[in-house]
Amino acid sequence: MKSPSNNNAQKTQSELWTEYAGLAQAGDKTAYNALLREIAPFIRNYILKSLANPDWADDISQEVLISVHKSLNTYSPDRPFRPWLMAIVNFRRTDYLRKHYNARENKQTTLDDFDFQKAHVTNPTHAGEYKDIETALDTLPDNQRKVFEMIKIKGYTAKEVANEMGMSVSAVKVSAHRSMAKLKAILG
């Protein structure tokens, strides 16, 4: 297996990524690891400028890295890597923001509605707490929330969730861990 060449200092960032991506397609884990470590801060800094909440940049960066992993076969080694990456970044950012704003609309029509509370909340005096939890869960991206609910609420194993969601086991564990940390931070 070919490894990244040693004259990296003479190469531009774009050339380096293109080389790493080609090697990653051939199965070079070292080059792939280096590529992901190079692009992660780049993605975060790029999207940060266009987001109202800096926390979202972390979620979107994570989704982009997973998307790069899933679609590595669609990258053409005879083309520069950066335009391919940027297409994914813009796609995931738009997707994330659309989901986020849609979810916010849902939040406004659930526990604020007294008829809904009467029909669905068994102990209305605790409605505020339920609402806090629901609000905190709603801050998670859809996929992350689904992973969290499957592992922490429904009791599936990480492997089962990974199979269901088409993710790696490690990505599932990281996602669940991150969700828990985020919920703790929100709920105190």
Binding site: A24, Q25, A26, G27, K29, Y32, N33, L36, R37, A40, D58, D59, S61, Q62, L65, I66, H69, L72, N73, T74, Y75, S76, P77, S168, V169, S170, A171, K173, V174, H177, R178, A181
Partner: peptide, 26 residues
Amino acid sequence: MSEQNLDKLIDGLADDLAPVKPLAHP
């Protein structure tokens, strides 16, 4: 995302890497 979690994610993805055949020209 903390640095540690990002590291874990990247390591996890790199571990999962298998050689892929690039799609042919359209």
